[in-house]
């Protein structure tokens, strides 16, 4: 089943925060991540889709059916909550069997199916444990099994990995994706972790102040961000404010930068984006967009080295594999991307 959100609007009575005309769609089998800083409206979007809140305007369609006025329990959605919301008075097996109990499945049958669901998340040995006796990762798997056991139309994940430590998070990420593929279910995953979103999703929605800024594949989001906010939020970025001075030349605080300006007239204010891995170290002296400076920050991250080079008028963030001293860098013109200012 697909999930379609059409021009959805919502406003919290007290705060000014809410949602303004958000539209997106998730088709069966697709994994869509929604990211943005706290207060951007991503959790509100999830609550609206789940039916915990009612929109002020717009429409939500699940499997083609308008969900306006339909209560949560009839929407047939599997939801994994941030804190898992497991029932502490039930065992792992009973937790997973509960949605089946609500559907009138007989005791033997529902325990059998819940057992299978736990097996799929590699928890069969822990079926008789209560949530308190399980680790965070195990609770997460129980929650996932419970959300999927009744074959819901779509899966909603509300920051499901935020309570786990970094090591488990990466592993759980792959596990969630594998289980989601297996079920071929439309999935909406809300997170504040852009790295998590890029690594897990087919497409990513970036939100800010209640609005959807861009909906695109992770690669496109990274390579062709819609604006400077998306560019800065997704991955690391050098962002230079500037003014178009002539054909393929932009004047910035660190000096003139040669790049394709796409025919923008002189005088236009623009922002230039350069990803740190595109910045080259120690270029020949006659290279274009070459900047000499001093290394002010140098972080060795194992597989790469991330550094800040202070140049007159600003700082350039770069990434390199080289371990040599860095005195100058080049930003190749083809790696500079023009964004609206």
């Amino acid at each position: 089943m697909s999930v379609v959100v059409d021009s959805l609007a919502f406003r919290y009575p007290a705060a000014g925060a809410g949602l303004d005309g958000v539209s997106l769609d998730v088709v069966p089998g697709e994994f869509c991540a929604v990211i943005g800083p706290s207060g951007c409206g991503k959790s509100t979007l999830l609550k609206l889709i789940a039916g915990f809140l009612s929109p002020a305007a717009g429409q939500i369609r699940i499997a083609g059916t308008d969900m306006t006025g339909v209560p949560t329990r009839l929407r047939n959605l599997g939801i994994v909550f941030q804190n898992y919301a497991l029932f502490p008075h039930m065992t792992a097996l009973e937790n997973v069997a509960y949605p089946l109990k609500l559907r009138g499945v007989g005791r033997a049958e529902r325990l059998r199916r819940a057992g299978q669901a736990l097996e799929r998340t590699r928890l069969s040995g822990l079926a008789d444990r209560h949530p308190r006796q399980l680790s965070g990762g195990q609770q997460q798997r129980v929650a996932l099994a419970r959300a999927l056991v009744f074959a819901p139309g779509a899966l909603l994940l509300d920051e499901p990995l935020s309570a786990l430590d970094a090591a488990h998070r990466a592993a759980m990420r792959d596990e969630i994706r594998a289980v989601q593929r297996e079920h071929g279910i439309a999935t909406l995953h809300v997170t504040h972790d852009q790295e998590e979103a890029l690594s897990i999703a087919d497409k990513v929605a970036v939100m800010r102040d209640g609005a959807l800024l861009q909906l695109a594949s992770p690669q496109e989001l990274y390579d062709r961000p819609a604006d400077r906010f998306v560019a800065g939020f997704v991955g690391h970025a050098n962002l230079f404010d500037g003014t178009v001075r002539g054909p393929d030349l932009v004047e910035t605080a660190i000096g003139p930068l040669a790049c394709a300006t796409g025919g923008q007239p002189a005088g236009t204010s623009v922002t230039l984006l350069a990803r740190p891995e595109a910045v080259r170290t120690d270029p020949p002296d006659d290279a274009v967009n070459r900047f000499a400076g001093t290394l002010v920050r140098d972080r060795f991250l194992g597989s790469l080295r991330r550094y800040d080079l202070a140049v007159p008028g600003g700082t350039i963030l770069g990434e390199t594999l080289s371990r040599a001293d860095i005195r100058s860098v080049q930003i190749p013109p083809e790696c500079l991307r023009i964004l609206p200012a």
């Binding site: 789940a50 915990f52 209560p71 949560t72 329990r73 009839l74 929407r75 047939n76 959605l77 599997g78 939801i79 909550f81 804190n83 919301a85 497991l86 029932f87 509960y98 949605p99 609500l102 559907r103 419970r146 009744f150």
Partner: peptide, 22 residues
Amino acid sequence: DHRQTEAAESMGASRLRALIDI
């Protein structure tokens, strides 16, 4: 934690059923 009853409702329980069961 009222997210427990919300969770139950998302699985198909009515409000009353969620209160009784959870």
